[in-house]
Design a binder for these strands. Structure first.
Lengths: 261, 261
DNA sequence: TATTTAATTTTACTGTATGAAATTCCACAA
DNA sequence: TTGTGGAATTTCATACAGTAAAATTAAATA
């Protein structure tokens, strides 16, 4: 039973056990719908109650966790951290004007996602003239296997990596048990295509295209998407925007690469 | 039980040293204007480079820290955490409609702050009809010693606690070296007053009143404020709103107390 | 009040975090 | 290109901090 299925991924040296466990607790708390009690958290993280309690206490001292009665949840200290990220990090900073321009030119909603573990996170979004009819808030975790902006992040992965993605997606309840590589492959962009398309996939009534933001370092971790209500845009309409998207992605990559501190 | 000397300092039992240090690194990264290199971070946190490096690596694995070249900064994983907090925590959730109503009735900007260590954080804000002429983003850290919403959080503290607040405020560069208890006392509400007032204090051109959100547990940690441009509201105008504020604070306290999971 | 379950503290043990020192890496200069 | 200094990283012996079992206390439930 390898219950060690933590999103912090057991790496080589298994360094900093207590810190890794604390992060595991912190992440677990984010997955709950409601605050949870000590024993539940301990069980879900696969560690003993005393250990979990001590971790929670330290996190609580810094405001990263808060407690009412016997229930623990994410605390207010995450708010300033996110603020710092949004104001200082080159990714959202650089993306803002670019998404702005995309939304302006296309009338569609322009979004920037980044990969985080086996999910993607909406980092920045500029809503276009054509409303989507629903709100997707900054910072929301979304699947990689569903939606154009997720799938394009998988385009460059090999078989082994995709297998990991699939088992994680099942674990996270994004995909049903038994979800196969073939099913996933069918959704992903065909060989040679540098963009992904989705229709009624992650959200119903919504179509979108996405391209990857090039990065010379490790694999692709960011994507830019254009999204529209399904009744207002055809597939061809969206695909016609791909060159524009490509250009935006390239511009963002250049900006990121040239950021000097 | 005395308030911990410093959220990042070694406490009585000195429990979880590595975790405490990791949090210290995480907080330090939030204080930098720009990404910093390993040795700088290590020095600022008062620990060795190898230790700091190991901590940074673990934080990086979870996305709480990111790195470009040799520079470390806060990573994108804080975004989903903040999202969870804003969507699930009873504090912002309960406050939203109450602030909404306050802003509606008064035409002013209504804000909810929570104390975090020796600072306060803007948790939720509803902008009123009368614009303030500046933006204050959710999650920003602000001083306790300046501004109505900060000062009201200090109203119930004793001499010893105020001394701590002062030395922390100096440490954080919110107050000049040599800032005295008498100077602070002069700003704080007089005995018997349950509200604080500020004019051109934290932000110029802005006046505000604030009341504390009652809490039966430990000391007060939340405050609600009404803010207006200085040219549009007199002190009396604002103080006339105090009963309304009191009512809102009471309502919020009741909501929080009755929240069931 | 009795009974059960969860939270917390204690304790003895074990493994992990630690920093000095050594080594490698890297930027810049010669 | 090679040399040089500073920074990052790895190694490693040691001390100490984190661990879980068991005990204790508190809090639900009947």
């Amino acid at each position: 039973m390898t219950v060690e299925s933590n999103s912090t991924e057991a790496r080589a040296g298994s360094a900093m056990r207590s810190l890794s466990r604390a992060i595991q607790v912190f992440e677990q708390l984010q997955r709950y719908e409601h605050p949870q009690r000590l024993n539940q958290i301990a069980k879900d993280c696969g560690m003993s109650s005393p250990t979990t309690l001590r971790i929670l206490r330290v996190l609580q001292d810094s405001g990263l966790v808060s407690q009412t009665d016997k229930n623990y949840r994410i605390g207010p200290a995450v708010l300033p951290a996110a603020r710092v990220f949004l104001e200082a990090d080159p990714l959202p900073r650089s993306a803002r004007p670019i998404l702005q321009q995309l939304a302006q030119n296309t009338g569609l909603t322009a979004s920037l996602y980044t990969r985080l573990g086996f999910e993607r996170v909406l980092v920045e979004r500029v809503v276009g003239a054509a409303s989507l009819g629903y709100e997707l808030p900054q910072g929301r975790r979304l699947p990689l296997t569903v939606g154009a902006a997720g799938k394009i992040l998988l385009a460059a992965l090999d078989e082994e990596q995709l297998a990991e993605v699939i088992s994680a997606a099942v674990e996270l309840r994004y995909e049903p048990v038994g979800f196969t590589l073939e099913e996933l492959r069918r959704r992903l962009p065909a060989a040679g295509e540098d963009y992904a398309y989705s229709e009624d996939e992650r959200a119903t009534g919504v179509v979108s295209v996405a391209v990857a933001v090039p990065s010379r370092n490790d694999g692709v971790t960011e994507s830019i998407a254009l999204t529209a209500p399904v009744h207002s845009s055809s597939r061809d309409d969206l695909v016609a925007r791909v060159p524009e998207l490509r250009h935006a992605a390239r511009r963002l990559a250049d900006l990121l690469a040239s950021t000097v501190y």
